[in-house]
Amino acid sequence: MVRRRSATLAWNAIGLAFALVMVFPVYWMLATAFKPANEVQTFTPQLVPLHPTLDNFRSVWHAPNFLVDLENSLIITLTSVAIGVVVGFLGALAIARFRFYGRRAIILVILMVQMIPFTALLIPLYLTLNRVQLTNTLPGVILTYLILVLPYTVWMLRGFIVNVPRELDEAAMVDGCTRLQTFYKVILPLTAPGLVAAAIYGFIQTWNEFIIINTLNGASKWNLMAFLAANQTLRGTTWGPLMAGATLTSLPVVIFFLIIQRNVALGLTAGAVKG
C-alpha cells in the first residue's frame, strides 16, 4: 500500500504541474493587466504585480473606439442571437417532431455548415453585401452572424425537443390544445434550459468573431474582438492596456462558457459514447 500511495503522490505532482502550465498564460494575462506600465516592461519579469493598479483598464476604457465597439458588440450579439434562437427553435421543432420530405437534407446541411471554414464563405458574402450596400453597417454583420448561431442552435435544440416525450404533446392535444398550443405550452417551457444554452453558445460564437466584421466593416463599426486585433502590431504593442482589454473582453465569454460547458462538450461528440 505504501507503494500505491507514493504512486498517487507522483501522479498528483504531475497533475498539478500540468494544471499550472495550462493556467499560466491566463494568469499572465491577468497579472500584466494589473501591472503599472514600468513593471510590464522589465528585464526581470515580476511574477506577481507588486503594485496592482487599474491604470491599464482605465486607459483601454478611454481608448478611442473602445466604448463604441463595446456597444456594437452588444447590439450585434444580442440581435443575432435573438433572431437565431427564434428561427432555430422553429427549425428544431420541425426536425424533431415531424417526418417530412427534405428533413434529411436539412440535417445534412446543418451538420455540414459547421465544418466549412467561414473564411472561405467570406469572399462571396463580402461581394454580395457590398452590392446591396450592407458592408460597413451593423445589420450586414448581424445577418452574416446568423450562420454562426443558427446551425448549432437547431442541432442543440433538436436534442432537447427529442427528449420531451411525445405522450405529453398527445395528452395536451387530447385535452384540446391545438398543435401550435402544444408548441408553446408544452414543448417551449420544457426546452427552456436548451434555449438558454443555445443562446449562450450563440453569444460566445458571435462575441468572439473578429475576421468577418473586420473584413465587412470599417473601424467605427467594429466589435471588441476587432478592436483588440487592431491594437496589436508586430513591434511596439502596449501590452498592459491590451491585456486589460483582453481581460475585459473575455470576461463575459468565460462566465457564460462555464455555465454551459457540459452542453458544448455533449453537442460536439453526442452519441459517440452512448448510443
Binding site: M22, V23, P25, V26, W28, M29, W207, N208, F210, M225, L228, A229, Q232, L242, M243, A246, T249, S250, V253, V254, F257, L258, Q261
Partner: peptide, 14 residues
C-alpha cells in the same frame, strides 16, 4: 475550463 473558455483571439495575443 479557463483555457477552453478563453476566446481564440485573446489566447493568441497572450
Amino acid at each position: 475550463m479557463l483555457v477552453w473558455a478563453l476566446p481564440q483571439l485573446v489566447a493568441t495575443q497572450v
